[in-house]
């Protein structure tokens, strides 16, 4: 299997470390971290990324704006994106998915659920919320 590269976009160092921990189950994967949307766009421009895990509430550029920009870019429009957020209301979920996120996961993150969602996305299987 080709080496996977995940981009974690999260302003909280605690969450970044926790997500990195969970993602290490994908043997040999590479993890890139970004602290907000702008930082994420810079990282995407300079490295190959297979999947993005992004928070919504971040300073400078939030996750929703980041998704909008990515989906408008023909080169990146198919990049799988998982939103990981504290916003658990149904309208927030719908908004995130409508903007183009492939999956919406609420915090606190259940590692098993996150890993299953990633595996399903990588295998083009429908995502069960």
């Amino acid at each position: 299997m080709e080496q996977l590269t995940f981009l974690i976009v999260e302003d909280s160092p605690t969450m970044r470390q926790l997500l990195s921990f969970s993602l290490k189950r994908f043997k040999g994967c590479k993890i890139i971290e970004a602290i907000d949307g702008v930082d994420a766009l810079k990282k995407i421009a300079s490295a190959r990324v297979d999947m993005i895990l992004a928070d919504i509430n971040m300073p400078v550029m939030d996750g929703l704006k980041l998704i909008t920009i990515i989906r408008q870019n023909p080169k990146m429009k198919d990049l799988p994106i998982i939103i990981i957020t504290t916003e658990g209301a149904e309208e927030d979920r719908q908004r995130g998915l409508k903007l183009g996120a492939n999956a919406y996961i609420t915090k606190p993150v259940q590692a098993n659920h996150l890993l299953k969602t990633i595996t399903d996305l990588l295998n083009n299987r429908p995502i069960k919320e």
Partner: peptide
Amino acid sequence: ANLYVASYQLHSTLDFSEVLRIVMEIIINL
């Protein structure tokens, strides 16, 4: 993993406001 990350982060700094921020992050995110 949650406990390790929380503990690691709590002891990663000696800055008072930074420690408070980490405590808040743990309460919110974990």
